[in-house]
Design a protein around this nucleic acid. Sequence first.
DNA 1: TCCATTTGCTACAATAAACGTAGCACTACG
DNA 2: CGTAGTGCTACGTTTATTGTAGCAAATGGA
Lengths: 112, 112
Amino acid sequence: MPKQGSAMKKRAVRGSSSGRPVMALLDLLGRRWSLRIIWELRDDRALTSRALRTACDEASPTVLQARLSELREAGFVELVAGDGYRLTGLGKDLAENFLPLYRFAERWSKRA
Amino acid sequence: MPKQGSAMKKRAVRGSSSGRPVMALLDLLGRRWSLRIIWELRDDRALTSRALRTACDEASPTVLQARLSELREAGFVELVAGDGYRLTGLGKDLAENFLPLYRFAERWSKRA
DNA sequence: TCCATTTGCTACAATAAACGTAGCACTACG
DNA sequence: CGTAGTGCTACGTTTATTGTAGCAAATGGA
């Protein structure tokens, strides 16, 4: 698979052309397993690629690697040698926005 | 009239089998255009199906209708006659979790 | 040293999802 | 009547994801 050069070259993130960063973010996070990966790495967890795969219901390594590449390029995830994947400072910042989701999901599951 | 009865036999939300509601929520929100739809309906906006389509970069009506059906079934979105689609109370509650994303995205776009 | 694991990562064919265009039935105007 | 709006769907094409298999490099014994 070809390496993507600098920032988001192989495919412009949807909505990025509008000049609204939130659109590019929503596009990136709206791809499969993106939210899940960030979720599994929350709270400063570090997971190897295979541990991450196990955590993500044995999702195919193809798409996981694709998402990890995108998330690394976006600056949300980094690969630390001998330690595995983990959120960057920016990634942790992003994950903060999703912690309330857990409580919301609990409430949601008990809805009428 | 939407026949939501048979519409949902297609697939259980990923992760719902794990008994963790947040997984089902991440699955639903991780599908294409889900986050975007919620975003476009934020702040009590009501959009017709075509206005929503325009807002979502002319995404195909096929997938938009699919997402709207899922979001309606999940109780996040409702269709009000003569008014269009809008977030339910639960949907607004969910959208609250994403409002900080806008500011985060701005910060993100200015990253090194 | 040789062997066995584990790491991150990729190839490739098959499947599922999304796209794009067109069009339906219905309603509300004039 | 005709025109235009609504929500929504069919269908063929393109794209994304899946599942299985496997690679080279690094690690740690025996």
